[in-house]
Design a binder for these strands. Structure first.
Lengths: 218, 218
DNA sequence: AGTTTGACAGACTAGTTGGTTTGTTATTAA
DNA sequence: TTAATAACAAACCAACTAGTCTGTCAAACT
């Protein structure tokens, strides 16, 4: 196999940076995915309009249906390729970098509160939004979504188990139950913020959540 | 003002019971409201179809637009006349009948868990559903919804304050914060159940919630 | 009894929506 | 260089959807 230098240059330079205005399948597809994610975040999957995504991206029907066979498949792709990585980056990976379970969780809680921008305040958690909307409506969505919750739940439970082994966390409590409780509480608080369009709920309920986390110490 | 006995009889007997098959504005309107509530519970407001309600009720466009000027007004009416009373009956009024704050809340929690039918499991809480869907989309919905949350929150905070006065609840904690925390947690747990289509989350996280409630005792 | 009015019935409409089809152009393999 | 194909552009379509309009019929009013 021969290597063409000009072709290499084309692949690396042109495709990723220069050729923004010309054709690039990967960029186009990603643009659709990102825009759809934003739209779903604001209006839900049912409120998402294919035409709306096209208008926002400046693309056409031809481009869209070249990359996705249907709106439903777009929804699946958004979950797999945008939502899931987003949850990992924001909620799951940080758990794995925690040294002291309780201290780390309290720190994470504060970070989440402070990072909550005005925009996020009234859009809420994308995973929970989609869960509440789509779980009863479509099984293919629900199974994808439930898998993400499970990954998050497991990572949190493992953090607590680790804390127990390191004598940081009370051994009397059940990591899986506490993990479920913490996830539910976090999502519940974010949901309240969304409704009030204010982070006051996060500060108010957050105090109690912190007290609860303190009560878990060994 | 004269009172016609025959007219009285007509008003009370015929309209409310006998004349089920003939015209009765109140019954028709209520039938639309109840059906719309069910539809919203399952598919959300955006998924609600006027035609769908008509099909389920056996009514027609004429009947619908005689009682409601638009789909949006129907949504408002469902919130005011069905959802709000439902929340009161199920969550707020029971709070007011509690004697011992902590014991009563734990009891209420268990009742909620046991009363959770298979249907409710995958529909979730109607108030929270509508909150998550409509808060970012329509201000007229959000204000109506937020008022209900406030009423619930206040009733719960009052229960805790009462508990403090009666030496049942620690005086160190802030009733409003705890009330917000409890509501958020409850809704978060119900939301998890909806996704898993199982009450396991309710039992798992419920254990922790009970522990938390116990920790509030004076 | 006759008139008015409230409570519908149901055909119709204009705009939207997901999806199709046909054509065009840039890119790539031969 | 050329043929093939991937990546679109855009007109088009059928189904759906909220809302309208005209007509009907039963009950209340006079």
């Amino acid at each position: 196999m021969t290597v063409d230098v000009k072709k290499m240059a084309c692949d690396t330079v042109d495709k990723s940076a220069d050729k923004l205005s010309t054709r690039n399948a990967d960029v186009t597809r990603q643009k659709i995915l990102d825009t759809a994610f934003e739209e779903i975040l604001l209006k839900g999957y049912q409120g998402l309009r294919v035409d709306g995504v096209l208008k926002k991206t400046g693309l056409t029907k031809g481009a869209f249906y070249h990359h996705f066979v249907s709106k439903k498949e777009l929804g699946h792709a958004v979950i797999d390729e945008v939502l899931r990585p987003w949850i990992y980056e924001r909620w799951i990976t940080p758990l794995q970098n925690i040294e002291h379970s309780i201290d780390g969780l309290i720190e994470l809680l504060k970070e989440a509160r402070d990072e909550m921008t005005a925009c996020e305040l009234h859009t809420g958690c994308p995973l929970n939004n989609l869960t509440q909307e789509m779980s009863p409506l479509d099984e293919s969505f629900r199974t994808r979504i439930v898998a993400i919750w499970d990954e998050w739940h497991q990572a949190l439970a493992e953090l607590l188990e680790r804390g127990q082994r390191l004598q940081q966390v009370k051994t009397s409590l059940k990591p899986k139950n506490v993990a479920r409780f913490l996830i539910a509480t976090m999502e519940g608080i974010i949901g309240q913020c969304k409704c009030y369009m204010s982070d006051a709920a996060f500060y108010d309920a957050g105090e109690c959540l912190q007290d609860y986390l303190e009560s878990l110490r060994a």
